[in-house]
Design a binder for these strands. Structure first.
Length: 289
DNA sequence: AGGTGGACCCGAACGC
DNA sequence: TGCGTTCGGGTCCACC
């Protein structure tokens, strides 16, 4: 599941492959990819374009062309972008699009579940499109407890459900949300608006440290995620709670529990991520003493 | 308006 | 062994 660390790793690896290259052939093999737009028309508009930059915002890969046009790629669940060197076998299982570059190498878009999207936008459409869907980048300086205070204030939803809203924290997904909450010692079912200042500060640190660890490990490979060179990430071996029901909490040895929040599998430590107010109060006074 | 649950997908894991 | 069922997860959308 590509979240911020996985998408950023893909972006960084893709950048030297694409920047300065011209698209000599573009084939879109699955009409779902560009829907509701005609895949043939999108391919025709991409053809001949020269890539100026490869950026990221939230979970979107942003491919900027020198013409000003922008291709927004979202990998959703199982999308991946693979580089194929000139002369190598181009056929890839579940390939949904193939781009041949002017140096003979190719980039194949692969997506088992077909949720991923390619959206081609005009220069002036990109900012509004992303700003309508995404909040602050959690690794930028502007993000912090004050931003969380504002975005969580009116929200009665469970904290984890709010964190999965991309307008609250751009790029956080199911895995890093659980990892961030564990690091912040916050229960995923705490009401989002009920955090105090110290807890918002802890949450800021938890989000950043979970994401930075993921970046340093080049993401987590559970099944489909690969970097463009086909390498796996190693963050899965650093998970503190995600997918670890019944195993001891790395901090306090209590067994990790699994529940569902907002329809998603959610793992947490019932001992160091207390839900009850009394326990939360005890934990707070223990921290301050 | 904010919250919730279903739809979209398909392979793997599971149950009988 | 084989077949049907369940699961999962990012985002959008319909419905409270």
């Amino acid at each position: 599941v590509p979240e911020l660390p996985e998408v950023e790793t893909v972006r960084a690896r893709l950048e030297p492959i694409l920047v300065g290259r011209r698209l000599d052939q573009v084939e879109i093999l699955d009409s779902r990819l560009t829907r509701p737009h005609d895949p043939g028309l999108v391919a025709a508009r991409l053809l001949g374009g020269r890539v100026g930059a490869v950026e990221r915002r939230g979970k979107y890969v942003i491919v900027r062309f020198e013409s000003g046009c922008v291709l927004l790629i979202h990998l959703r669940m199982t999308g991946s972008l693979l580089r194929v060197h000139a002369g190598e076998e181009l056929s890839v299982a579940h390939a949904r699009a193939v781009v041949i570059l002017d140096n003979g190498s190719a980039v194949v878009y692969r997506d088992v579940r077909r949720f991923g999207t390619w959206l081609l936008l005009e220069p002036d459409e990109v900012g509004p499109y992303l700003d309508a869907r995404l909040g602050h980048e959690p690794l930028e300086r502007r993000f912090g407890p004050r931003v969380l205070e504002r975005s969580l204030a009116a929200r009665r939803a469970p904290l984890k459900a709010a964190l999965l809203d991309q307008r609250v924290v751009a790029g956080l997904g199911n895995i890093y949300a659980d990892e961030a909450l564990w690091r912040a010692r916050l229960h995923p079912l705490r009401p989002a608006h009920g955090l105090d200042a110290a807890e918002r500060a802890a949450l800021t640190r938890g989000i950043r440290s979970a994401l930075r660890t993921g970046l340093a490990r080049q993401g987590a490979t559970l099944r489909d995620y690969r970097t463009p060179d086909g390498a796996t990430g190693s963050m899965q071996s650093e998970f503190r709670v995600y997918g670890r029901a019944g195993e001891p909490c790395p901090r306090c040895r209590a067994p990790i529990e699994k529940t569902r929040v907002g329809g998603r599998g959610t793992w947490y430590c019932p001992a160091c991520q207390p839900l009850a107010a009394a326990q939360a109060g005890l934990a707070a006074s223990a921290r301050s003493s």
